[in-house]
Design a protein around this nucleic acid. Structure first.
Lengths: 228, 228
DNA sequence: GCTTGAGTCATACGAGCGTTTGAATTATAG
DNA sequence: CTATAATTCAAACGCTCGTATGACTCAAGC
């Protein structure tokens, strides 16, 4: 936000894309805090120190800005997930993986993002929650590319790890895991408030350990008989 | 929209509160579909066949309408939950309850609402998801009354059922359960689509059985040592 | 049959929205 | 230095929003 001022380089156009990333950063924060619809371009550009027209210049439209904000985070996280899963599979050499290991490969990348970018990391799960809740049609292709397609390999790995479960059962349980994660990481202060400070969600490593333990136990439960 | 005309009884003021409940029903549907901010009073009143001013007349403001829509659903559901839990405790006579039974008392009322009102029942979990995601300050008191306070007895029952778990651990795991439920019931078509029809979320009894099985196994897992 | 009060209605207000425009400004290159 | 492209800027466009207003309509009570 605060750009260090040096003698020579602080004209308004010093950095090539300073305005662009400033808008992206501010939009990410405000979108995570208030949602897409409730955040106006005027609020974004005002806080980013940019002109209102800059959004349409750099991102064509508000929808374009939303997609740019989302893609910047989702793509690296999902790539990281697939890399971790690939490393696990390479090390196992065909043998089934432990459910805990698979779930950790799924949940560690977003939680590490939280660790790295101390504030802005928390924005990722909230943005994801808004994507799943708001049925804006313009982000359907993004969600299809980044999630529906890329989680396919996690289904296969879990199916391999839990051969006694039906394919539907694996899907259901991964769906429950996703819900537990989004609700926890997307509302980091909710549990702290409702538990009156008893639970602290501020440490991603603790969150990871607890949620993986919970969901892995759920995966290892005997399957429900019926399909559907 | 098109009002059928009968000779004697169809004057505009025939039913005493027809307009009020029509607005509530339509607002509930549109809020669940598009969220609070993205739904305009004009869209609500147009679909409800009411005048724009009727909202402010009956509900004072848009915030008042939102609160009325939420309270109409949340209150009966939460009352039902506490009644089921009370019946379980009375039947057990002081002995700890089974985790499955407690979770069923928690999740059956909203899922039965889905069963009864074939369409509009699905609106409840989506409204809940919007309440947890949108940080509108006006609904904080409602959430405090209806949830933070009323779920206290479920915490105690689960603590009693899982005496080896720390109080924080019980809170964490109930939080995960809530997330799995909201994500599943609030996005009923999401799993169907991503699983390419393999999983059908349309039957509440199936959803209940699967989610209770998953989360009860998570509760019965050995506790993580550290607090926080 | 007039009065009263609840409810409905069309209309308007000011504010905020996303987007567009064209000129002004700055960086880049010949 | 000059020409050219990239970027920023202030201003305005048309539109929709939530809310307020005052007249109108109807049922009920005396």
């Amino acid at each position: 936000m605060i750009i260090p001022i040096s003698a020579t380089m602080h004209s308004p156009h010093s950095s090539p894309c300073g305005t662009k990333t400033a808008i992206l950063d501010t939009a990410e924060r405000l979108f995570a805090q208030h949602g897409f619809e409730a955040t106006s371009l005027r609020a974004i550009t005002a806080e980013a120190g940019a002109n209102l027209g800059a959004v349409n210049y750099h991102f064509t439209s508000k929808d374009g800005l939303i997609l740019a904000v989302l893609r910047r985070r989702f793509q690296p996280v999902n790539d990281h997930r697939l890399r971790l899963l690939g490393a696990l599979e390479a090390a196992a050499g065909g043998r089934p993986l432990a459910v805990e290991a698979i779930l950790e490969a799924l949940l560690r990348p977003p939680l590490e993002l939280i660790n790295q970018a101390s504030q802005s990391g928390w924005f990722y799960p909230r943005l994801l929650a808004y994507c799943l809740t708001d049925p804006g049609s313009y982000l359907k292709p993004l969600m299809q590319d980044e999630f529906a397609n890329k989680t396919q390999r996690f289904h296969e790995a879990l199916q391999h790890a839990c051969p006694s479960l039906s394919r539907a059962e694996v899907r259901w349980r991964l769906h429950f895991t996703t819900g537990a994660f989004i609700h926890t990481a997307g509302n980091p202060q909710l549990l702290e408030v409702t538990s009156q400070g008893l639970c602290k969600a501020s440490d991603p490593e603790t969150v990871l350990k607890r949620i993986v333990g919970f969901c892995a136990a759920g995966f290892l439960a005997p399957g429900v008989g019926a399909e559907g």
